[in-house]
Design a protein around this nucleic acid. Sequence first.
DNA 1: ATTGACCTTCAAGTAAAATTTAATGCTAAT
DNA 2: ATTAGCATTAAATTTTACTTGAAGGTCAAT
Lengths: 119, 119
Amino acid sequence: MNKYSILEVSRMLNMPASTLRYYESRGLLPNLQRDDSGYRSFTDADIELLQLISCLKKTRMPIKEIARYVKLVNEGDETISERYEMIKEREEAVYGQIEELQEALKVIQTKKESYEKDR
Amino acid sequence: MNKYSILEVSRMLNMPASTLRYYESRGLLPNLQRDDSGYRSFTDADIELLQLISCLKKTRMPIKEIARYVKLVNEGDETISERYEMIKEREEAVYGQIEELQEALKVIQTKKESYEKDR
DNA sequence: ATTGACCTTCAAGTAAAATTTAATGCTAAT
DNA sequence: ATTAGCATTAAATTTTACTTGAAGGTCAAT
């Protein structure tokens, strides 16, 4: 299993090391291991989790809610249905955001066309 | 021309009066008139502008940039091409946001399906 | 003339969320 | 031994957008 230092991960994912520490402190990386010196040692699974976190963040999911989801994953199979509900909620939230943006887009495009008309 | 007090507009658009004052202070309502007592007197054109502002805010356009656009509108026809550029930029920005959300949506839906598969 | 609702300005305070920084000190590598 | 990297923790910062409070003017009605 590959191991990465915090600086390596920082560079790989283009996130400040301080952010990675912060994420761990918020419970976003519950399985992050330390080496003999107490240094954080990221695995590929941690990297993947960070990528999922990035994705969820793009949907404006709050850190706290991401932490809740990650915690449930860590608790095992009993939490599957709750996690499934969360995912469905997130899907709905994203649909909502897309729709709102599409509404706004219409208005903007109408404006744009009005500029194009009188030329 | 219809005239509205700040409280009437506040109720019509469901925005706190303090927000309307704040918007004016940021240059979002450059033509807002006052009555003989110094009270703000909103016209239908002001209302329409506020609706456009709401729309632009939904696209996460910063107040400062909205103010810049409104200022240009107020400066007249010489600024048309610059405004047109701004509108096109905003359209692009919205497309970008929608695409980012759709990317995230794919990931979420894949996760959702993985929950649905093993049931 | 008094009351109450509504209005004004301006400075200061708040909110929320997510980092970032600073201080202090251990660890690794050359 | 020096330098670069890592640790923890609390505190400070950032961002953007308001919101609130104080002090006081206006209006319509009583």
